[in-house]
Design a protein around this nucleic acid. Structure first.
Lengths: 203, 203
DNA sequence: CCGATGGTTAGACTGATGGTCTAACCATCG
DNA sequence: CGATGGTTAGACCATCAGTCTAACCATCGG
């Protein structure tokens, strides 16, 4: 966990550190990122880095959280769909997905960071898990909401549905972010992608 | 690429090296695996290791290839479905998927290796890509075959379909391998999973 | 105004990593 | 017998994440 000390730093220096770390992680991914380069770019010593963060994973988690907080501050928080019918349910999701990806596409460094967050080594599981913890409850609530209005099937284990949807989402996001922004009609594409999810999740 | 020299080694020593490497990669994943431990377990020197393999990625790719070759030798090669109707097409796929997972479940080390092959760092992209190269043509052929018989939609870019299906497959395989073998009816589950793929891919 | 406390910083240091390099080994062949 | 060249051993290198200690310096009590 980020040491609370970090919050007491001048905002400007906090930003310098998170910025340097975001650069490094976005460019090299977690494992190939170098803390030594980060502290050099941020202009702090190794002692300070370990005074403020528990280690590499903690720094990564902090950078990701800061980026996501900024993103959600721009887009607004995940709404749990409240529509009373399947079509409304899916429309809410598609709309939010669209807003999210529109903003994300405007933050290439954050996009690069998130694209590489599918980690295999158990090492990062904790840091990633910390982030997932934030999303998982929303997923479960949304799943339940969808099932209540008959938008989502109830015949499969939630863990499987969430896993498959995460896998699809990752693939779709990756594909989407790899497209040339010029030649995609984003609302159109989001509609198609949401339809893919709906095909899997519909009863 | 594995140096051809490796093939000239006594089969028994080849096996010892691949075995030690499989153990290490399966247990620790790619990044946290240690070449030093591998050479120690295999009883060879670092010089020899680098005489036979280009490096860590090369070793990983070789181990994975050897494991997959063994798996395919047991199961038989990927058949490109030749059925003339959508139902037959999907039945062929489901059948092959079932045989593949049945055998894979019997090789826990290989399963662990493959489960961790979702790599983010560009470092491993090459090694993974080398493996993907083997599967990609089959995927493309199968995709085309499915489209020919009307089993697969033609309105989306192949790259997107393949990406999404890969993401789903990874999630499904991971979920499946995490289940207690006792309380899954494998043929049943495979049917469900194949149906998920079909929902996405059907026209 | 002084000295002590304690949060903060610098950077040398540790053990490990993946990868390189050179010297030796040794089977084969002329 | 001597030379060639594939093979091996392991010292060595740069770099890594993470630890540790000594110094720094602002705040506080006297």
């Amino acid at each position: 966990m980020v040491r609370p000390r970090f919050a007491r730093l001048p905002a400007e220096q906090q930003q310098a550190i998170l910025d340097a770390a975001l650069d490094e992680f976005a460019e090299h991914g977690f494992h190939d990122a170098s803390l030594n380069r980060v502290i050099e770019a941020a202009g702090i010593s190794k002692g300070s880095m370990y005074y403020y963060f528990d280690g590499k994973e903690d720094l990564y988690a902090s950078v990701a959280r800061a980026g996501l907080e900024q993103l959600f501050a721009d887009v607004g928080p995940f709404p749990v769909p409240t529509a009373e019918d399947p079509d409304g349910f899916w429309a809410t999701l598609a709309d939010y997905y669209l807003r999210l990806m529109t903003n994300l596409a405007a933050s290439p460094r954050l996009a690069a960071l998130l694209r590489g967050w599918a980690v295999s080594g158990s090492a990062l599981r904790q840091a990633a898990g910390e982030l997932e913890q934030a999303v998982l409850p929303w997923m479960q609530q949304t799943l339940a909401a969808g099932q209540r209005v008959g938008a989502i099937r109830t015949d499969l284990p939630p863990a499987l549905l969430i896993g498959v949807v995460s896998g699809m989402g990752q693939a779709m996001d990756g594909w989407l972010l790899a497209q040339d922004a010029a030649d995609v009609d984003l609302p159109d594409v989001i509609g198609v992608l949401t339809d893919l999810l709906r095909r899997v999740l519909a009863p």
